[in-house]
Amino acid sequence: MKYFFRLLRIVLGPFMLLKESLTRPKGVVRSVADQTKVDAACQKLALYQFATCPFCIKVRKEMARLSLTIELRNTQHVTEHRQTLLAQGGSPKVPCLKISNDDGSVKWLYESKDIVHYLQQEFAVI
């Protein structure tokens, strides 16, 4: 069963990535000062993800829509990222957003809908 899904991902992955690039939303336009503030806030975030995971694609599309420059950490191909996610986040599940706070604490946010909701709350343009 595991090999079936691996094969399915290999076959469908390029099509999923093509669809993502063709349907990527246009990002919001902010003033230079506002975008600089958003970029600074994004420095405290990292998205642990797989390139062809449909839930990760959902989060990346929202990042594009909100014009966010969040670091992407591929846990499928980079063992160090997968180990960090497991050791510090508690689960190897993706997508997972690492949120580093000013006081040094870290929050690990799982579930694509929760991550999208967080991004919309923090960075939505009114």
Rank of each mutant, 00 (worst) to 15 (best):
H117S: 12
L86K: 07
Q88R: 15
L66H: 05
Y110T: 01
I115H: 06
V29Q: 08
L85H: 02
V29A: 04
D34Q: 11
V116R: 09
T52A: 14
T69G: 02
P95I: 08
G89Q: 05
K93C: 15
P54V: 12
A33L: 13
A64G: 04
K113N: 08
Q83C: 11
L45D: 02
H77I: 13
L8Y: 11
A51Q: 14
D102P: 03
T52S: 15
S112V: 04
V38D: 00
E111N: 03
T79W: 07
Q35A: 01
S31D: 04
Q121A: 02
K26M: 07
P14E: 03
V38S: 02
L72M: 13
H117A: 08
S100I: 03
K61L: 05
S100D: 15
G89L: 09
T23Y: 09
I10K: 13
P92C: 10
F15I: 06
T84K: 11
N74F: 11
V28M: 10
V78S: 06
G104V: 10
I126Q: 13
L12T: 04
T52H: 07
I10Y: 05
Q88K: 15
K113W: 04
Q49Y: 10
H117V: 01
V32N: 01
L18F: 08
F15K: 08
I70H: 09
G89K: 14
I57K: 09
Y3Q: 12
L119H: 00
I57Q: 06
V32Y: 06
I70G: 00
R65S: 14
D114R: 05
K37I: 02
Q120H: 12
P54C: 14
S21Y: 08
V94G: 02
I115E: 07
W108F: 15
E20N: 00
A87T: 05
R6L: 03
E122N: 13
